[in-house]
């Protein structure tokens, strides 16, 4: 299952590798690592957001090992997609490989297309779609929108984002 985890590292060299190694040792597949060096927790630690896939039965043991290694586990999220936005697309959405468009978001590991409504007038006319993007946080949501814009701009599709 996909897990998002907020951890906090000591501000000394080598801590990120120390925290990530157990994840792969337990057969986990890292999808995203957000290392916010410029932010600090009140206790002077550096927050890192991880997203990874792992077998659920191994999760508890992983958390124990992380704690043994001096890594604070601040939050474990199974409901991981917290922030959402609606965007509208206008253009030849289906015939320009809608699957690739969706995959460009889903493959990020931090964001997904969770809803898509499509309106298709005559075959030669432009169609329109409303797309709901969800992501694990606000920054990731912005990045997902950027990725979507880059992907569909090449296909001549217009993106209308929310104010």
């Amino acid at each position: 299952m996909k897990i998002s985890m907020d951890i906090e590292l000591k501000d000394i060299p080598g801590q990120l590798v120390r925290a990530l190694k157990p994840v792969s040792d337990f057969g986990g597949n890292l999808l995203s690592v957000l290392h916010q060096r410029d932010k600090k927790t009140p206790s002077g630690r550096i927050p890192v957001q991880l997203v990874f896939e792992i077998e659920e039965r191994r999760l508890d043991r992983l958390v124990e090992v992380l704690k043994e290694r001096g890594v604070n586990v601040a939050r474990i999220g199974k409901e991981r997609l917290k922030d959402s936005m609606v965007v509208l697309l206008i253009g030849h959405i289906v015939h320009s490989d809608v699957r690739e468009t969706i995959d460009s978001i889903d493959s990020t590991g931090f964001a997904e297309v969770v809803e898509l409504s499509l309106s298709m007038p005559a075959v030669d006319k432009k169609s329109a779609a409303s797309v709901t993007l969800s992501a694990i946080g606000k920054e990731e949501l912005k990045e997902a929108l950027n990725i979507l814009e880059r992907t569909v701009n090449k296909k001549g599709i217009m993106v209308i984002s929310s104010v």
């Binding site: 609606v86 509208l88 206008i90 006319k125 432009k126 329109a128 409303s130």
Partner: peptide, 27 residues
């Protein structure tokens, strides 16, 4: 700059269903 010439009634309806209007916004 992007104008409004490509906006379709379908797009406005989908926006409406999702709780939005489409407006030309300068920012």
């Amino acid at each position: 700059v992007t104008g409004i010439t490509d906006i379709t009634p379908d797009a406005l309806k989908l926006a409406n269903d999702a709780g939005y209007m489409i407006k030309l916004i300068g920012e």
